[in-house]
Amino acid sequence: MTDQQQASEDAVMTRIGQAVMLLHAGDRAEARDRLADLWTEIGHDGDPLHRCTLAHYMADAQDEPEAELAWDLRALTAAEGLGDGRLARHEPALVVRAFYPSLHLNLAADYLKLRRPDAARSHLDRARAATDALGDDGYGDGVRAAIERLELRLRGEEGRPYSP
């Protein structure tokens, strides 16, 4: 990869990050517009890291659960095409399998919103099974805690009492 290609890829991640800052600041519409423009530039067959990252955050910018699910599914599909080598060029300490707990957790939450508890349970089980890839750090602890919270919500939706 040439230095120019690397700089171009970094620019895409920077632009995604700028849109995410807007999202976190509460400007969902502007974030959604910027991410949509970037998605058009990247394309359905673009760099899997860009597609995964963008789709993950685009899901968070959606107002409708069906649209959120569609973007979270795109993020999962992109992650499945992402190799550790490509990820290492962006962040050497990351491995793709560390993405899966969060990706499946998001899908479980989407399916729960859509009142599809069986699909929610399936993805929650996948999220939990993938947690061995998470570090013992704030991010890993946060994802594990979110899995536990969603487990409690799902059990409540299913009408079953919680039993650890």
Rank of each mutant, 00 (worst) to 15 (best):
V143H: 03
L76Y: 00
A31F: 04
A145F: 02
A79S: 14
A78N: 08
L154T: 02
A78L: 12
R97M: 08
H90C: 09
L112C: 00
R97L: 08
L49Q: 03
A25N: 11
P117I: 13
A36L: 05
P117Q: 12
E64P: 04
Y162A: 14
Q18N: 10
L152D: 04
Y162R: 04
L124Q: 05
C52T: 06
M58H: 04
H123F: 00
A108L: 02
D45Y: 10
A133V: 10
L54D: 00
V20E: 04
D118F: 07
R121E: 15
G81Y: 03
W71M: 15
E91N: 09
E158F: 11
D10H: 03
T2G: 14
A127L: 06
A59H: 04
I42F: 14
D141L: 09
R74K: 15
T53K: 08
L103C: 09
L87A: 14
D45P: 06
L107M: 11
R121L: 15
L107S: 08
R115H: 13
P92L: 11
V96R: 08
H123A: 01
G142S: 09
G26T: 08
R121Y: 10
A127S: 10
M13R: 07
G83K: 01
T131F: 08
E30V: 08
A19W: 00
R86I: 06
T14H: 06
I147T: 05
D60P: 03
A127Q: 01
G43I: 11
L76A: 07
P161V: 06
D141M: 12
D37N: 05
R86W: 07
E151Q: 07
E64T: 10
H123I: 01
H50L: 03
G138P: 06
E91P: 01
R32D: 11
D84C: 14
D27M: 11
P117C: 13
Q4L: 15
M1F: 04
D125W: 01
A133S: 15
T131E: 15
L154R: 00
R28K: 08
T53H: 05
G142M: 13
L82V: 13
R128E: 15
G81R: 05
L112P: 00
Y111I: 08
Q4G: 15
E41S: 12
L150E: 07
P92A: 12
D136E: 14
A108Y: 00
G83W: 03
D3Y: 12
D60I: 10
